[in-house]
Structure formats: C-alpha cells, structure tokens
Design a protein around this nucleic acid. Structure first.
Lengths: 213, 213
DNA sequence: CCATTTTTATAACGATCGATACACAATCGA
DNA sequence: TCGATTGTGTATCGATCGTTATAAAAATGG
C-alpha cells in the first residue's frame, strides 16, 4: 500500500492553504507563479506535479476556502432557530470573517476573480455557482420558515435571498476598502432593518413585497 | 495659434472612451496594451505620446467615467425633492446604468481594480476616494433632509449612507454575474424597505438606529 | 524650398509571465 | 543491491508584458 518513488518533501495541505492566501489577497491574475512558489516554499515543478497548473491550484484553493471560511459564514443559516436570526447571523458572521486580523479582507469567492478574463470557463462557472449557492441556501432557509409558519405563505423567498446576498457581497467591497468589523456589523444591522418590510404579509397581487424573479 | 508639427490623426476623446470600455470590461490588470491599442485604433507610441502610460490612461478613463456614468447615478441625489426619493433614485439609476445593453455591467470604479495590486498608490487612492465620495454625497443629502425637518435631528447620516453605498456596490457584483435590470431594481426596492426602520426617531442612547461610526 | 516640430508606423527592448526539460535524489518492490 | 518510480532543484523555454528607439511622414514658420 505504501507509495512508490521519492516521497513528497512538503505538506500538500499546508502549501494549498498558503496558496489560498495569495489568491485571496492578490486575486487570480495578479498572483504570479513566483508569488505562489515563494509563499508555498516549493519550486514550480513541485507545484505542477502536485496541483497540475496555476488554474487547477486556484480551483483547489477555492474549494479549500469553501470548506473552511465559507462554512463559518453559512453555519448560522442552519443553527439559528428563526429565519431572521439565521440571516442576521449570516451577515454578522460575514462581518467577522471579512475582517479577521492577519487575513485578507472580504470574501475570496467574490473578490479574487471579479473580472472573469484570463480565467477558464470551468473556473468561471465554479465561482458563479458558488456565489449562486449562497442565494439558494438562504432561499431554502426562508422556505423552511414559511413551512414552519414563521413567515407568510405568500412570500417569495428568492428576491429576499438575493437582496441579502447582495448586501453581503457589498460588504466584501467595503472590507477591501478598509472597513472595520464594527462598520460591517453596522451595515449588517442596517440590512436587517428591512426585514419586517420584506416579510410582512400584504394583500396579494396589489403591492408585492418584491417584484419579479 | 495653430499647432506645429504633424497633426494627430485620431480623436483623443474618442480613443479615451474606447480605452475606458476596455478597462471597464476587463479590469486594469487584464487590459493589455495590445487590447487597448486595438480598441483605440492606434499604435502604442501614439498612446504613450497622448496619455503618458497605461496607468495614466487608466486614471484618465476613470475621470471620464466619473464625468459621464457616475454623474447619471448621483444626479437623483440632487434632483429628487425628498431624501428617500433621492436614495431610491440613486439605487434605481444604478440598476439601469449597471445593465445598459452593449456596455460592461456594473460600476468601473468598483470592479476594475478591486485587488489594488499592480496599480500605483496614486491610482489606488483615486479609486478609494471616489468610492468614499459616494458615501459623502449621500451623507450630505441626509444632512440636508435633517436641516429641512424631513428626518429627525438625532439621526446619524453616516452609517445610513454607508449601508446604501454597500448595497449599490453589491449590485455591481450582481451585475457582473449577469443580473438583469429588473433583478437589480428588485434588490434596490428591498434596500428601500429598510428606510423607515433606519430613519425612525427613537429614544436616544437606548437603541441607536445604527451603532458606531 | 528648407529647417523645425510633432506624429506616425515598424521593430525591438528587457522583464516577467506560466510552464517544462533535464539530471539527480530518494524511496519502493524484488 | 538493483531496476523502477516519483519528487526535487536548476535552468530555461517561448510568449507576452509594458515601454521605447528609430526613422519616415506631415504639418508649421520663415
């Protein structure tokens, strides 16, 4: 069962984490191979043997980001008892994660490849699906709240989820501009001020809470 | 008064607009000199003679963007009679400008250099000041509404302005992901649902509308 | 017409980009 | 111990990056 050949002299997972930090901070295009190999403590042939290419390494870093940072942000959607607390927790967790000391500010999935140029179709699709995945998760949480009677049955979860994800993505930009955790938390509270208006039951087909899908 | 030497064979302003489109769509780093010269219809020596360098051309493009697109977005802040209509107009104008057919989606100032790497300090500062300028303009509009008695005197305009600018920046990300004008308008309406909660007068120092600056 | 000035197109500069060829080192099974 | 296999370090590949040297072209003033 033992591996054949010369064993790898570096920790693949640790090197991936260092690569993630480089992509996270500099973005995909601005992250040069020399930046990556220096941060990972290896030479480029080792990088290519272990990860395939720069873009494959980037995708691996995105998946690692999703398995660590993203999960911390999305956890409140499952753990909080009410839909309102779930979304508030989602935004407040974002404020905390986006301003962790010593870590790049904002969300890697949102910031590291906003301009899809220079990145392949597969990677572009992966990023877009991940961003859309947040909308789906919030949507499902709202749907659950409707099923449990917390929210009115006539409510359309999709535009509400889209609104809160948009706020969270704006918070990434703000974090990149130097906004503090406190500032981001204030923004999150501002977004929650829309909750009652968005979820209040109202006469159907006369004044919809939010318009189209 | 006539110019000496061989006259320039291209329209400087028209070339600048085409360069703006390239930076807007691809971002600063991904916009190669060959992309720019091809779009502008000139050779690189002409570009350098007319604009100095790639980064100076980028700054000129940013200023041109501010003088055209940005002004359309910020106009409702001055023209609308109430603070609420002003901010709603700001968001609805953003939804329209961000999804103009045949134009790059989203805001160039927000999207074209999110990762400040590879761009000089002067350009980085210019972009950050422009983003902060939107907050200031909204803040001043809210302050005017307070002076006119439309909003309670105890209100702090700064966090409210920060909240709405954050939503607008999130709308840029959404536009880049393919959101339609209608979708962005729905998000804008969602953000306006927070208005009453954010501007309602309340007991001072007990439950502040939004926390710190 | 000629000297001067500015722009033009061609061609190429050094630097850096992502990616590899190559020879050597280190492990395995037999 | 030896062939097979895999990883490592060096050195470099062709392509492209932003930028510029050079000389011809097109205007001016005198």
């Amino acid at each position: 069962m033992a591996e054949r050949g010369r064993p790898r002299s570096f920790d693949r997972q640790a090197a991936l984490e260092r690569a993630m930090d480089v992509f996270w901070e500099r973005g995909y295009q601005a992250a040069a191979m020399s930046d990556l190999t220096e941060a990972m403590g290896i030479n480029s042939p080792s990088l290519y043997a272990a990860f395939g290419s720069k873009e494959e390494l980037y995708r691996a870093a995105i998946h690692h980001f999703a398995a660590t940072e993203s999960d911390d942000i999305l956890a409140p959607l499952q753990s909080e008892p009410t839909a309102r607390a779930a979304i508030e927790g989602y935004l407040m967790a974002s404020a905390r994660i986006f301003t962790r000391p010593g870590r790049p500010p904002g969300c890697m999935v949102v910031l590291s490849a906003v301009n899809a140029v220079g990145v392949g179709d597969e990677t572009s699709r992966l990023l877009r699906e991940m961003r859309a995945g947040s909308v789906t998760m919030i949507e499902e949480r709202l749907q659950r709240a409707i099923a449990e009677g917390e929210l009115p049955a006539a409510l359309d979860p999709h535009p509400i989820a889209g609104y809160y994800v948009t706020v969270q993505q704006g918070m990434s930009i703000q974090a990149r501009d130097g906004a503090s955790r406190q500032t981001l938390e204030t923004i999150a509270q501002g977004a929650m001020a829309a909750w009652d208006g968005l979820t209040r039951p109202r006469a159907v087909a006369r004044e919809p809470a939010l318009m189209p899908r």
